[in-house]
Design a protein around this nucleic acid. Sequence first.
DNA 1: TTAAACTTTCAATATATTTTGAAAGTTTAA
DNA 2: TTAAACTTTCAAAATATATTGAAAGTTTAA
Lengths: 168, 168
Amino acid sequence: MELAEAKKKFIETWGKLGSEWGINRTMAQVHALLLISPEALTTEEIMETLSISRGNANMTLRDLIGWGLIEKQHKAGERKEYFYADKDTWNIARQVAKERRKRELDPMLKALDELSKVEGDVNDPDYKTFNKSVTDINKLAKNVDKTLDTMLKAEENWFWGSLFKIFK
Amino acid sequence: MELAEAKKKFIETWGKLGSEWGINRTMAQVHALLLISPEALTTEEIMETLSISRGNANMTLRDLIGWGLIEKQHKAGERKEYFYADKDTWNIARQVAKERRKRELDPMLKALDELSKVEGDVNDPDYKTFNKSVTDINKLAKNVDKTLDTMLKAEENWFWGSLFKIFK
DNA sequence: TTAAACTTTCAATATATTTTGAAAGTTTAA
DNA sequence: TTAAACTTTCAAAATATATTGAAAGTTTAA
């Protein structure tokens, strides 16, 4: 496979993965493009390479900055803004986990906590089933939250090292 | 909060979570409804409770069966099909992880393996950056795959016990 | 100042996904 | 058989999400 072809395929693959995980395709593709670019790119270059509009490029770049996945770079004597991606996969994974926790897990934990407080007749099968499911899911969600918390604070080697020890 | 209100809220919350994770809202809501139902329900009851059409209910139920999250039940002397959900959160988590691995991670690993084989000039910064990113992501994906594999084979207590030991 | 270079906004448009519902298909009891 | 009870299908409609592009906004150098 040619490098040019491989690049296209990578951008496409990363885009598909993103859309399967709730990150929009274009956002994932811009991220992929920056991941394989040795140099920071301008909005213009990104628009051109991916055939997307200026508005789309601008919004997507802002989103990616919001996710902590890319950063702006200013070149001396230039007006234009350049963008580059953090290339460290561990950081990428952490950043994504961190954002999704904040955006999704936290609100869910809040809702579940409230729902597990609902009182009812312990002889009512409806109530019993409701309560058990909510409580169990709440426990699971809390475990996930705790694990993520520790993971986010951890160093890469320490994390993977420990993980391999258990999952040998 | 009233039980009836709490049930509604739970179905809504689970639905929202699902849609954030690439599972469609209705599918997550039907799953939620069955999770809090002590008895298996008919298509009719599900349609009514969630105000969805027959076609939608039928397709969603088939999808949920495909994901291994619910099962059909036949009651003696009845023509109708009843549906019930596995209530064990550990099984649910495992089932979802298993399906997503099969549907998403496996194809991605295949694509990444191919892309990491692409050869090029080691003095070309383009090639070097491409190669490093692809290789790194491939490693990460393989680690995730390995971890999931072990997790899927593991027993609940063993898994959470070990996880807590590291992430104390 | 001002005007060129650049960035941001957002209503309109396009695309993708989900849902409907009526018709077709299947199963079963009599 | 047959007809009632039930399930499945799928084209059309509705809804949700993403994208465009031109206009408005901002910054900077002269």
